[in-house]
Amino acid sequence: MPAPLSAPTFDAGAAYPEVNDLRKALDAADWPAVQAVFADRDPAVRTLLVGAAGDQEGTEPFLRRVYDDDPTDALAGTLLGNCLIRTGWRIRSGARAQHVSRNQFDQFHDHLRRAEQVLIDVTARHEDDAAAWTQRITLARGLELGQNETRRRYDRLARHHPHHLPAQASLLQQLCPKWSGDWDRAFAFAFECAQAAPDGAPNAVLVAEAHMERWLDFDSHQEQTDYLHSVRVANEIMQAGQRSVLHPDYVDRADWVWVRSTFAVMFSVTGQWSAAANQFTALGNLGTEYPWGYVGGAEGFTKYRAKAYAKGGQS
């Protein structure tokens, strides 16, 4: 009998040990320890760590003190800005707009405006700071600044970091209809990023993500089913995988759990079980809330993993 598969975990600390180090440093309000976690990290890892810091509640007073002591410190400003953004989104909640109270919206926008002021200063002083610019792209969505302003922010970042996947993923969300975009622009951007990146780079995951967003946007189950059964859709997802996670030059780096999770979902729902099994083997029991939350969270992960291994084989 094969060994039982372990339950999935979506805890970033299980995949990235440095996230646990950052959590401990923030809990202890130890700024030198926080700085040590970020030291010598590449832009993608710095952006990942900034995001992880924002998931930790109760850090705003500490980060505000550090930032006030030295407003020229890019790390302090970026962490404080992200903390304000995440706190604002938690106040707003993930509910649809009609179910969010006026008080929630007021507090949400207040936090985002304060974050914007901090991050404007960071990017003015450090124009090549990928993590800060990535947060400003997210801010543009929350503050409803429009397509042109969000793209302008991405283009400023791309001058220095042309293949920065977290920023590309954030802009892709803005280009979807749910954020006042359209599917032509969303797919054009996803394919542009995939084709511009080197073979083996993770950026082609944006094509899979665009298809996921399009699939979930259909109103009826039948439309969703027809979309997933499209040969064109399956082929485009497979070709994206072959440029990235299935390419011989692919190496797991920052965001690899989200990248492989996205492909695991899309290979599964399009019935490409061998490729899906490949991703589940690489993931082990690791996953991310997004995109697994779209398909049932941990239960969906377990269900699709079992089907992938049954139909596609376990490597």
Score class of each variant (00 low, 15 high):
110 D>M: 10
123 T>E: 11
110 D>W: 06
164 H>P: 05
112 L>D: 00
91 I>V: 15
137 I>Y: 00
113 R>I: 03
139 L>R: 03
171 L>V: 06
84 L>Q: 00
125 R>D: 06
97 A>G: 04
166 P>L: 01
177 P>C: 10
91 I>K: 10
118 V>Y: 00
123 T>D: 02
167 A>H: 03
155 D>K: 07
134 T>F: 03
82 N>H: 11
166 P>M: 06
85 I>T: 13
98 Q>H: 05
159 R>G: 07
148 N>I: 04
81 G>E: 11
179 W>N: 14
99 H>T: 06
129 D>I: 02
103 N>D: 15
156 R>P: 01
114 R>M: 08
135 Q>T: 03
105 F>M: 14
99 H>L: 12
132 A>E: 04
169 A>Q: 12
92 R>P: 01
130 A>F: 01
163 H>P: 01
138 T>L: 13
153 R>Y: 07
124 A>V: 04
177 P>K: 05
154 Y>I: 06
142 G>A: 13
119 L>N: 03
147 Q>C: 04
114 R>N: 09
85 I>C: 11
102 R>I: 06
90 R>W: 04
171 L>T: 08
124 A>T: 11
142 G>Y: 04
114 R>Y: 02
167 A>E: 04
170 S>A: 15
144 E>V: 09
179 W>H: 12
90 R>E: 09
133 W>F: 07
91 I>N: 12
173 Q>N: 11
99 H>C: 05
88 G>V: 10
121 D>G: 11
89 W>H: 13
150 T>V: 08
115 A>N: 01
109 H>A: 05
165 L>H: 02
164 H>N: 10
144 E>G: 12
127 E>M: 02
129 D>Y: 03
124 A>K: 11
150 T>D: 12
149 E>N: 07
168 Q>H: 05
139 L>G: 03
148 N>Y: 05
147 Q>R: 15
104 Q>N: 06
141 R>Y: 04
85 I>M: 07
175 L>E: 02
117 Q>T: 10
99 H>I: 04
102 R>A: 14
156 R>S: 15
122 V>I: 13
84 L>R: 00
156 R>M: 10
174 Q>E: 11
85 I>N: 03
102 R>S: 12
101 S>V: 09
82 N>D: 14
154 Y>C: 05
119 L>C: 08
173 Q>W: 08
166 P>F: 01
110 D>Y: 07
103 N>F: 02
115 A>H: 00
81 G>C: 10
114 R>H: 06
164 H>S: 09
163 H>D: 15
105 F>G: 01
110 D>T: 14
80 L>K: 08
99 H>Y: 12
176 C>L: 08
179 W>F: 14
101 S>D: 11
112 L>A: 00
135 Q>E: 15
86 R>K: 12
82 N>A: 12
84 L>H: 00
133 W>D: 07
142 G>R: 02
83 C>S: 15
99 H>A: 15
95 A>F: 07
155 D>Q: 13
96 R>K: 13
108 F>K: 04
86 R>Q: 15
127 E>K: 08
109 H>E: 15
115 A>W: 00
95 A>Q: 12
86 R>N: 14
83 C>V: 08
132 A>Y: 04
84 L>M: 13
154 Y>R: 14
154 Y>Q: 14
156 R>F: 06
129 D>P: 00
174 Q>K: 07
151 R>L: 13
157 L>Q: 08
81 G>H: 10
84 L>I: 00
107 Q>I: 03
117 Q>E: 14
111 H>N: 13
135 Q>F: 00
80 L>R: 09
140 A>F: 01
